[in-house]
Amino acid sequence: MKVTIEENEETGKFTIKVKTEDGEEKTIEIPKENLEEILAKLPPNVEII
């Protein structure tokens, strides 16, 4: 699983794009305050880009 994290400076939010092993892609946008909480919940086999 690969996770790409991009900061949107205009909105102050982060866009998180997840690509699973089977090629499925999902995108979510979260507030900056929630980034550490989300990262802590990721499984250890995740590659963060």
Rank of each mutant, 00 (worst) to 15 (best):
K17S: 10
E7N: 05
I5V: 08
N34K: 14
A40L: 07
E10A: 10
E33L: 05
I16V: 12
K2Q: 12
I28T: 04
E7R: 12
I16R: 00
T4I: 12
V46S: 06
T27N: 05
D22G: 08
P43S: 08
E10G: 09
M1E: 03
T4W: 15
N34L: 15
K26T: 14
E47T: 12
I28G: 01
N34V: 13
I49P: 03
K26L: 14
V18N: 00
L42N: 00
P43F: 15
K26G: 04
I38P: 00
L42Y: 06
K41E: 06
I5T: 01
I28N: 01
I28C: 15
E21D: 10
D22W: 09
K17P: 01
I16Y: 02
K2H: 08
K19R: 10
E10R: 09
E36R: 12
G23R: 01
E33K: 06
E9Y: 11
N34Q: 15
K19H: 11
E21Y: 08
F14K: 14
E10V: 11
L39G: 00
E25N: 03
I16E: 12
K26H: 14
L35G: 00
V18S: 02
T15I: 15
N34I: 13
I38A: 07
K17T: 15
E21C: 13
N45K: 04
L35S: 01
I48M: 06
K2I: 13
I16S: 00
D22H: 08
F14D: 13
I48E: 02
V18C: 15
E7A: 09
E37G: 06
I28D: 01
D22E: 07
K41V: 05
G12R: 02
K41R: 12
L35C: 07
E36Q: 12
T4R: 05
L39H: 00
E33A: 10
I38V: 10
V46W: 11
E10M: 09
K32M: 06
E36D: 09
T20D: 08
I49Y: 04
I30H: 01
I49A: 05
K13P: 00
D22S: 09
E9C: 15
T4P: 01
I49C: 09
E24W: 12
K32R: 12
E7Q: 09
M1S: 05
E9A: 13
K2G: 04
I48Q: 02
K32F: 10
G23D: 02
T27M: 09
E33Q: 06
V18T: 05
I38W: 15
I48V: 07
T27C: 13
K19S: 09
E6G: 03
E9M: 10
N8L: 03
N8W: 02
K26C: 15
E47Y: 03
K41Q: 13
L42R: 01
N34G: 12
F14P: 13
L42C: 07
N34D: 14
L39C: 05
T27G: 02
E33F: 08
E25R: 02
I38N: 02
E47V: 12
T15N: 06
K13E: 11
P44A: 09
T11D: 14
E7V: 13
K17C: 10
N8Y: 02
D22M: 07
V3N: 01
T11N: 13
P31L: 12
T27I: 13
G23H: 02
E10N: 10
T27L: 08
K26E: 10
E24R: 10
K17N: 11
E6Q: 09
I16M: 04
E10Q: 10
E25P: 02
